[in-house]
């Protein structure tokens, strides 16, 4: 069964990237690298992407019958989605185990609609 793991971060932490040293950045991402490596090799990860920061986001939506384009994410929250992985696992338990070992912030686990 396929699940989408959404990796949640905050606008505040994304802002901090601007001032981090290379060493700090490297330290911050090292654990995530290991995580992806482990589960990619195990064949659990079938896809996923790292998204650019929230400041690069654009939203298209309907407003008074017109299609409008605006700067920024449509979910107004201090939390933002930094990226995602599509995992193919036995059940929610297994997806949760993967999410638990994620070295970063919170992870949302969403079952995908199977076609």
């Amino acid at each position: 069964m396929k699940y989408m793991l959404l990796f949640v971060g905050t606008r505040e932490s994304q802002d901090q990237w601007d001032t981090m040293t290379p060493e700090q950045l490297h330290a911050a991402m090292g654990g995530a690298e290991t995580w992806f490596e482990k589960y990619t090799q195990a064949g659990k990860i079938t896809g996923g992407l790292q998204l650019q920061g929230y400041k690069t986001v654009t939203t298209a939506q309907d407003s008074n019958g017109k299609r409008i384009v605006t700067d920024g994410p449509f979910i107004e929250s201090k939390e933002v989605i930094g990226g995602f992985a599509i995992v193919d696992v036995k059940d929610l338990e297994e997806a949760q185990e993967m999410a638990k070992s994620w070295p970063g912030g919170p992870v949302e686990v969403w079952p995908a609609v199977e076609r």
Partner: peptide, 13 residues
């Protein structure tokens, strides 16, 4: 710098 994940944001296969 923005292309790199930081604690709390990382992901990517």
């Amino acid at each position: 710098l923005e292309k790199w994940p930081a604690q709390g944001i990382p992901d990517n296969p």
